[in-house]
């Protein structure tokens, strides 16, 4: 059944088909906004790129939906990487079943979708993480798929754009998850030496080992408005310092004010802004 989804990938990823979005959410007429807690008419928020019409809260997107709103229609070609499969290095009880369960609910093989596509006419390698899949955590499959995508970009002189959304390293794979941080960073070092553009787009939420590796390595780091960005979890910090953190702590705006993000961007302006950045970089290759 999962196989079917991937065989039909071209169709699935190329069409602006809302039914594949947020498959976990039952089809009800109303959605409760995470920001203002108001009930919003589903159609209204969908037509508004999943941004609340009342408070402008940016709801989380699935990878498919992100691709639909950012990548030029019909241009996204997904990398298969079919040989990349989870080895369950700790033989962690229940992990394989959990992966299967998430595959079924999200239609994804793991927490990232990679491929090539055009944005405002510029070709780029694009990786989009999906926090619906085990909190977007990074294990071997995510690490290997992103690494291969970076290598593809280096070999083909293409810019790479990574949309991050992750709770960090995947605990169930233990130390192997940690090694992915170094592996991806190494591949990005080579891409960097080749004079190619790496654009990071940080989306909600991005924490832990993803923040402490590729999320912070972009030539340009863009963050979606309101996104949570941090290294340590808020609760861990509160336990350490024994006081409550201010509400905007670790927000995209907080990170920008501390100098760690170049641009904070609203969802409806994101595609255009990425397009302009790609234009300035001559499509990516620095001549």
């Amino acid at each position: 059944m999962i196989k079917d989804i991937f065989n039909k990938k071209k169709q699935v990823w190329a069409q602006p088909n809302k039914s594949i979005v947020n498959t976990k959410v039952p089809d009800s007429m109303w959605i409760k906004c995470t920001g203002c807690k108001k009930a919003v008419y589903r159609k209204k928020i969908e037509d508004n790129l999943m941004v609340c019409p009342h408070c402008s809260y940016h709801m989380r997107l699935s990878a498919a939906e992100r691709i639909r709103i950012i990548v030029d229609a019909g241009t996204f070609e997904r990398f298969d990487f079919e040989d990349v499969v989870c080895s369950d290095p700790l033989n962690f009880p229940g992990y394989k079943e959990k992966l299967e369960q998430y595959s079924n609910t999200t239609g994804l093989r793991d927490a990232v979708v990679c491929g090539t596509g055009k944005i405002c006419g510029h070709k780029a390698v694009i990786c989009v993480m999906d926090s619906n899949f085990l909190m977007g955590s990074m294990g071997y499959v995510v690490g290997e798929c992103i690494t291969r995508s970076v290598e593809y970009a280096t070999e083909n002189s293409l810019p790479i754009i990574i949309f991050t959304a992750s709770g960090g390293a995947r605990m169930q794979e233990g130390i192997i998850s940690l090694m992915q941080m170094a592996k991806i960073s190494g591949a990005l070092a080579k891409h960097n030496e080749s004079g190619l553009l790496y654009l990071t787009v940080i989306t909600d939420p991005t924490t832990g080992g993803v923040t402490a590796s590729f999320a912070m390595l972009g030539d340009i780091i863009m963050a979606e408005r309101g996104a949570l960005i941090g290294f340590a979890g808020k609760r861990v910090i509160e336990q350490t310092i024994k006081q409550k953190l201010p509400p905007n702590f670790q927000s995209a705006e907080f990170m920008a004010s501390h100098g760690f993000v170049d641009l904070v961007c609203e969802r409806d302006k994101m595609k255009n802004l990425i397009g302009r950045i790609l234009t300035i970089h001559g499509g990516g290759k620095h001549e």
Binding site: S185, A212, F214, G230, A232, I241, L245, F249, H258, G259
Partner: peptide, 20 residues
């Protein structure tokens, strides 16, 4: 270290840069 100052001064960025 997991603390406020560490976050404000970019713990994630510092580690990431070292890796690369």
């Amino acid at each position: 270290f997991c603390g406020m100052g560490a976050e404000e001064r970019g713990q994630g960025e510092a580690i990431a840069r070292n890796l690369r």
